[in-house]
């Protein structure tokens, strides 16, 4: 719909186009009112008061015919992300016991024998622990991570540090199970699978709020 843009250099150099410019300004102002509906095409950038940051699309074809259509297998090869609702989790399962073995072999060097010794990020902490007076409060799985799916996603894509992306799904499920157990979120006999991971409630979930800073006088 209203995707007209101002060609600002024309405005500056060709005074005859001033009228057209003013009309476009009006369109831009109107377009700004319902930007959220305008998802199919480019949206005006910034306001007409800042024409430097706009892009003139008036002469554009419907499509530039640049690039190629992605095939299913090409997408599948890269589409590794996991959503909080569990979408994207591969088939598989893991146990706390197996997870502990893998953890000790591949993770403990950086994160410590029980997930608190470091030297890298502490992984284990309890939300209920009343205070960390005098010590830095760790941001660990049990007191800071809002979604269990994030554990799978992150371990799967980025860990272990010296061999990222090398773990099989069952190994990742097992590590996830073990870390959830160490954080007192699941029981020792829990079997974590692609069907139940997204249902696991994380202690810190209720702490998260969306950013409400909006500029203006108030410091937030």
């Amino acid at each position: 719909m209203l995707c007209l843009k101002v060609r600002w250099w024309q405005v500056n150099t060709k005074k005859l186009k001033l009228k057209r410019y003013l009309t476009l300004c009006l369109f831009l102002a109107l377009a700004g009112c319902n930007r959220s509906e305008n998802l199919q095409g480019p949206t005006p950038i910034e306001s007409e008061s800042n024409p430097v940051n706009t892009l003139d699309t008036r002469d554009w074809p419907e499509s530039f015919q640049i690039g190629r259509e992605a095939q299913e297998d090409e997408i599948a090869r890269q589409d590794i992300d996991v959503r909080p609702d569990g979408e994207g989790l591969p088939e598989g399962s893991g146990t706390v016991a197996l997870g502990k073995q893998i953890y000790l072999a591949k993770c403990a060097t950086c994160h410590g024998r029980t997930g608190v010794e470091g030297p890298e990020a502490k992984l284990v902490a309890r939300l209920s622990r009343p205070d960390y007076e005098g010590r830095k409060k760790p941001k660990a799985i049990g007191n800071y991570w809002p979604y269990a799916t994030t554990l799978f996603d992150y371990i799967n894509r980025a860990m272990p540090f010296n061999a990222p992306g090398s773990l099989r799904p069952d190994e990742v499920y097992s590590l996830t199970a073990y870390l959830l157990y160490e954080n007192r979120i699941v029981e020792r006999d829990e079997i974590v699978t692609n069907r139940n991971l997204a249902k696991i409630k994380m202690p810190a979930k209720g702490l998260f709020v969306n950013d409400d800073r909006r500029g203006g006088r108030e410091v937030k």
């Binding site: 959503r83 941001k139 800071y144 991570w145 809002p146 979604y147 799916t149 994030t150 996603d153």
Partner: peptide, 15 residues
Amino acid sequence: IEVSDQPYMTREETS
């Protein structure tokens, strides 16, 4: 880039 109707809650935007 994967277009979606919700955020993914990745490690970098949660922990």
